[in-house]
């Protein structure tokens, strides 16, 4: 199928290449050098860079402004947009703002509850949910209409994505939930960090059973552990994260000064194994405050050089 948008990410995926995306968290301040630097570290090794939207509800420089920075550098941003902080007026308005800078990728998310962040006493909005945001942006793009029905001048040309967590509960609706997101308009999916490969492969099997892998590009999410402590933290403290005991043991069994290496190796092995899984269209490497190691992961996983389209 030919691309529907000018998105480079879409072109790569539709051309049948394995896509590689990564993500950067904006700074907790107004200095753009931070985001520019992070992007420079990974720009040759990834096809597109997600910019998180006040992740874990901690207030940061806005995703849109950081995406514009990437755009000014000639890079391909994926604008993450959570429905926690904005109502449908602000969401549609920000979509147009992003489109005006030719930001061509949008990832629609619910967002972590504000109680995890630095403004736990704040209100949340949740006027739309992530699926309804998908519907909204698709309506703006495909029908050229606002939710209210009025025409959009120069509709946003955005490749639209969503997240999927194969590990959250209840497992039985994880695939139906993906189907719902596809029905709502998702064209690509970035998954939660994968550590439990068996469970992910089981999920992919169910995805294939329903033919969903042919309707949506699934980018498998990976996050390298920096230490055994991080593995334990992700296992016990992060909601919806599935880290098997043997992975934690493997990290803990490695001498402290070698743990970072081991974390990278596990990540590379994960990618290698998932490359063989039918329906995995690419990888989303979330190296949390560890962007400098992304090139190495991409190279060792055999995903370098990146294709040009």
């Amino acid at each position: 199928m030919s691309p529907k948008t000018p998105s480079k990410l879409e072109k790569i995926l539709r051309a049948g290449h394995r896509a590689v995306t990564s993500e950067c968290g904006p700074p907790r301040g107004s200095d753009p050098a931070h985001i520019v630097h992070k992007a420079q570290l990974i720009q040759r090794h990834v096809d597109a860079i997600n910019i998180t939207d006040n992740q874990t509800s901690v207030c940061r420089l806005c995703s849109l402004a950081a995406c514009i920075r990437l755009k000014l550098m000639g890079l391909e941003p994926v604008l993450q947009m959570v429905v926690r902080d904005r109502n449908r007026i602000a969401l549609q308005s920000d979509i147009l703002g992003a489109a005006s800078f030719d930001i061509h990728n949008l990832l629609c998310l619910s967002g972590d509850h504000q109680r995890f962040g630095d403004n736990a006493q704040g209100q949340n909005v949740f006027d739309l949910d992530s699926m309804q945001l998908l519907q909204t942006v698709r309506r703006m793009r495909d029908e050229g209409k606002f939710l209210g029905g009025d025409p959009v001048q120069r509709p946003p040309a955005m490749f639209v994505g969503a997240a999927a967590n194969p590990f959250a509960d209840p497992f039985e609706i994880r695939v139906p939930r993906l189907a719902k997101k596809v029905a709502a308009g998702a064209e690509f999916i970035q998954t939660q960090c994968i550590y439990n490969l068996e469970r992910f492969e089981k999920w992919m099997e169910l995805v294939r059973d329903r033919g969903l892998h042919e309707k949506v590009f699934i980018l498998a999410g990976v996050t390298p552990f920096k230490s055994a402590g991080m593995a334990r933290y992700m296992k016990s403290k992060v909601p919806g994260m599935d880290v098997p005991d043997e992975v934690v043991k493997r990290m803990a069994g490695t001498p402290k000064d070698k743990q970072a290496e081991e974390g990278i190796t596990i990540c590379v092995e994960t990618i290698q194994r998932l490359k063989a899984v039918e329906g995995v269209a690419g990888f989303h490497i979330m190296a949390i405050e560890w962007e400098e190691r992304v090139p190495e992961i991409v190279e060792r996983a055999g995903l370098f050089p990146r294709p040009t389209v």
């Binding site: 509850h113 992530s130 967590n165 959250a168 209840p170």
Partner: peptide, 20 residues
């Protein structure tokens, strides 16, 4: 639902409990 999601659950649902 702490996020009043009309199309839930979110990815934070664990063992029947809410992420909050």
């Amino acid at each position: 639902c702490a996020k009043r999601l009309l199309n839930g659950p979110c990815g934070g649902s664990t063992a029947g409990k809410c992420e909050i």
